[in-house]
Design a protein around this nucleic acid. Structure first.
Lengths: 142, 142
DNA sequence: TTCATATCTACTTCTATATTATAGAGGGAT
DNA sequence: ATCCCTCTATAATATAGAAGTAGATATGAA
């Protein structure tokens, strides 16, 4: 049950942006260097983030990417969605592809995969960009 | 966040075994046919399940695989573990590989990936083979 | 006009998963 | 004893999707 690097880089880069001076664009090359990620790869990720309106961009010298909203208002689930990561643990629990599985009528397992997907969804919905940007205080020892 | 086919086939095949006459070995070729999975692939999965003592085997004519314990006592987490699926969403939250990530000292995200992993773990720990073998009664509409 | 930046499209490489293949070991039946 | 059925083990190959690379273009500030 691994996350893709696209997702991980996306979250890391968003945290990186949060830590930059507010309103000041960061060139992607700087972000790539700070995060130790190849610029060309990060480009593709940032285009998605921008299209999802999670970040804004400014072209030309002095340009770059920046966040123009409160990190507390951005959920991880939005970042996931922007870069195309799905929480569905199997293909058959997403709405579109239900019809493709010939077992769906009598499959006794599927409802549990659905539950798992929802559990994961709830996690991503409950954690904000702000949360993952600050030092974690372990309240519950779970 | 997809499950591998190895995991899915493992769970499906275990359910298949539950539905066979108790104590009577099922030849793997039959299971493969019923499940629509290639025998050669299923062989590898079943060896792992047997090594984990989740199932037993009998060689020779009339032999095959069978379950010799209560499906209520087998957790999905045991099946996952047997076939090598991990709930860790990123490599750095498993104990062994912690040392490999140079960011672990100051990374503010990692604790949340750890939490996600635990959440997934809890799910797999809370669902038994019996659960996924019977028709699901949706009690909570969540 | 020049340069720094983002944006877009396409292509290549890589790797884990999935699949196939080959050989062997054990055991029941005749 | 021999045969065939079954599991067991390991190796080789194929595939798909992720990861990474490249080239060309658009935009805007100085």
């Amino acid at each position: 049950m691994k996350l893709t690097t696209r997702t991980r880089y996306a979250v890391r880069s968003m945290v990186d942006l949060v830590n930059q001076p507010a309103g000041k664009p960061s060139p992607l090359s700087d972000i790539a260097q700070r995060q130790g990620v190849k610029l060309r790869y990060l480009e593709q990720i940032f285009i998605r983030l921008r299209r999802a309106k999670l970040i804004e961009s400014k072209k030309g010298p002095g340009g770059g990417y920046f966040i123009n909203q409160n990190p507390k208002s951005i959920k991880l689930s939005e970042i996931m969605k922007a870069v195309g990561e799905s929480s569905a643990p199997v293909f058959c629990v997403t709405r579109n592809s239900q019809k493709n599985c010939p077992r769906m009528i009598y499959c006794t397992i599927k409802p549990y995969w659905g539950k798992l997907g929802k559990t994961i969804d709830q996690f991503f919905d409950s954690v904000t960009l702000h949360d993952v940007s600050i030092k974690y205080d372990s309240i519950d020892p779970g």
